[in-house]
């Protein structure tokens, strides 16, 4: 009832949950070996920003459009092409539809 057969493999969510549970127990055990030097309310809890002062929390929030900035910049040639493709013009939407229709027509109908 739980095992999903795919012909070449299987998947059982219960085994997976059991493994995750055991892994968490293992991590918890390893965590116990750590040193307990942490003290609240001392210098230890402050963030270290290369000697700069910590800004107010509202200013520290990384905005969504700045996340993965490196990825989008390194893929900028792909993104500029895709941006050019998504013109937002309804005539172009129709044009894409006709292009796909024409390609399929050539592949299946003519050739």
């Amino acid at each position: 009832m739980f095992t999903l057969e795919s012909g070449s493999g299987f998947w059982n969510p219960l085994i997976w949950i059991l493994i995750i549970f055991i892994a968490f127990l293992l991590f918890y055990g390893i965590r116990g070996f750590g040193k307990s030097l942490y003290k609240k309310g001392t210098e230890q809890t402050k963030a270290f920003l290369s000697g700069n002062k910590e800004a107010a929390p509202e200013e520290m929030h990384v905005k969504a459009s700045n996340l993965y900035w490196g990825f989008t910049v390194s893929m900028s040639s792909l993104y500029s092409r895709l941006r050019k493709m998504h013109t937002g013009n309804v005539s172009d939407y129709l044009l894409w539809f006709i292009i796909v229709l024409a390609i399929l027509f050539l592949v299946i109908g003519v050739i």
């Binding site: 929390p57 509202e58 520290m60 929030h61 990384v62 905005k63 969504a64 996340l67 993965y68």
Partner: peptide
């Protein structure tokens, strides 16, 4: 990765 970004940007981080 995309939805982790959304999760971080909307639900986590400092209170605005």
């Amino acid at each position: 990765a995309i939805f982790i970004k959304v999760l971080y940007a909307t639900f986590f981080g400092p209170e605005l």
